[in-house]
Amino acid sequence: MAEVSGGGKASREINAEIKRLIAQGETDILVRDPGARHNLGVAVLQPLRLTFDGSVGYYCAGLCDGPMVEIRGDTGWGVAESMLNGTIIVHGSAGNGAAAAIRGGAVVVHGDAAARAGVSMKGGLLLIAGNCGYMAGFMAQKGALIVCGDTGEAFADSMYETVCYVGGRIAELGNDAVVAELTAEDVAFLKSTFSRYFGGETSKSGRRIPRPHDFKKIVAGRKLWNFDKREWATWKEAL
């Protein structure tokens, strides 16, 4: 494993060192003391194992395709935003817009996620062990959003085909979000996902994960998918 010391360095310098090591053929890189710098590990486009030994700022591992990134701390806004593929593990909590607009891969937050987690996600998986803030899943298009704890208000607002699962209390469903029946396939999916990313009944931040069959499933009611004058009451709220 190669190491980069982030202490006192700007994001650009840390990223340049990471890129230099990748160019040298390194496949396992540890960044010590990342100092909550923004934009670390952006646009990594190969199957690299990249570990940040501490908290990171905005857009960590954004625009990636393929890496396995582990963050041993908290993240700022937009962790993994617009990722095409890869696995991003956050040991602590995530700021606003975690996994925003991801098109594939998996983002696992062992703590809590702030507002708009999974906003505009277009595929992949966002798994939150703790709670999430308001408007999580807003305009989400595809993929799966799992919140093991409680959600904030306007949860799953104006979604397309994303499937959400909530283990705790939903403060308020967003526009066009409806509760659907949890099927055996859903339970099997949750079980295998928890087994893969948590490996037990608690997350790395010590959150206890509810049993899969206790989750609620939320999907789009599809009333906002097309303009329809008969749905004027819904539209009035949504627009």
Binding site: H38, G62, E81, G97, A101, N226
Partner: peptide, 27 residues
């Protein structure tokens, strides 16, 4: 009937946009 969002999903004001632009430069 696809309606695009008005706000970016991962930043709001100009302070955040400074970081966003730096991200695009890094990318």
């Amino acid at each position: 009937d696809q309606r695009s969002p008005a706000r970016h999903p991962d930043f709001l004001g100009p302070d955040d946009m400074i970081i966003k632009i730096e991200e695009l430069r890094e990318a």
